[in-house]
């Protein structure tokens, strides 16, 4: 599908009427959850996120960057060029990088080391904004989609992975900032909402599996595919904290912690979310 169709498709999708959520009366939480599930099911039949997957596939296998090579030699943990199921086992420790990396920090590593792209512009433009597309969003959607049907299964066998897991767990509960918030403030109880939006409960494995298995996801409210790194940035931004570094250790540690809680959840991406 041509690029010029994207905005049109996005507009059409935004016009799909939401199942009416009456604001005049307090809706039962389960009704809201049901109608959102129904809305998602309707959208999935023509998930616009597939356009990002297609673009990511093209980008991944095309020679690009100063070195004029594709990403086919990128090792995402299962060996160079092995994409099937690779995302489902990330984050993991990479010998060549000397650190634990999630999908996106690994992609940045391959784009800089193999293709010769400069790191700073990649990080600066990692999130699409308005008319500017992001290659990383498309690449992440594509690579993650190659794990569809695989269960989330981080290895946690390397000492650095265990260390990062513990750091991630600690950071999840670490309160800071002008609102005294931690991730746990919003995500450690059942059936809680922030305004109308349901919140995942870290202690409910079914919910964590559903969430972690569905990112990258097409976000209807933003008209684009967003990645887990964006989700990490967004939460910290809402917590009134400064921009967290793209692919930074804090984000990787949190994603590792979350994916361990989501162990066994099936990857099904791109998802569709509000």
């Amino acid at each position: 599908m041509s690029k010029s169709l994207l905005p049109i498709l996005a507009v059409v999708l935004l016009l799909v009427p939401l199942p009416s959520i009456g604001l005049a009366q307090t809706p039962a939480a389960s009704d809201v959850a049901d109608s959102i599930a129904e809305y998602r099911r309707m959208l999935r039949e023509g998930n616009p996120g597939e356009l990002w997957v297609a673009r990511g596939k093209r980008l991944y296998h095309t020679p690009r960057g100063p070195n004029g090579v594709s990403l086919d030699a990128c090792d995402l943990g299962l060996g160079p060029g092995e994409l099937e199921g690779a995302f489902a086992a990330l984050p993991r420790y990479f010998e060549d990088a000397g650190r634990v990396q999630d999908l996106e920090s690994r992609l940045v590593f391959c784009m800089t080391h193999l293709q010769g792209f400069a790191r700073e512009p990649l990080l600066r433009e990692a999130f699409s904004s308005g008319e500017r597309e992001s290659d990383l969003e498309a690449l992440a959607a594509y690579v993650a989609s190659r794990s569809n049907g695989y269960p989330l299964a981080v290895e946690l066998s390397h000492p650095r992975e265990l260390e990062m897991y513990r750091i991630g767990e600690g950071l999840f509960h670490r309160r800071s900032g002008p609102l005294d918030l931690s991730c746990a403030t919003c995500h450690s109880r059942e059936q809680r909402r922030i305004r109308m939006h349901g919140l995942m409960n870290i202690h409910n494995p079914a919910q964590v599996r559903d969430v972690m298995g569905s990112w990258p996801t097409y976000r209807v409210s933003q008209g684009t595919v967003r990645t887990l790194q964006h989700r990490m940035w967004d939460c910290h931004w809402q917590m009134r904290l400064p921009d967290v570094g793209y692919g930074s250790d804090a984000t990787v540690a949190l994603i590792l912690f979350l994916n361990e809680q989501a162990r066994g959840g099936e990857v099904d991406v791109p998802g569709v979310r509000r």
């Binding site: 513990r166 750091i167 921009d243 930074s248 250790d249 804090a250």
Partner: peptide
Amino acid sequence: QMEAVVRDSWGDAP
């Protein structure tokens, strides 16, 4: 360790 990760991960913040 957590504090070191926090400092590093928000290293670009003014």
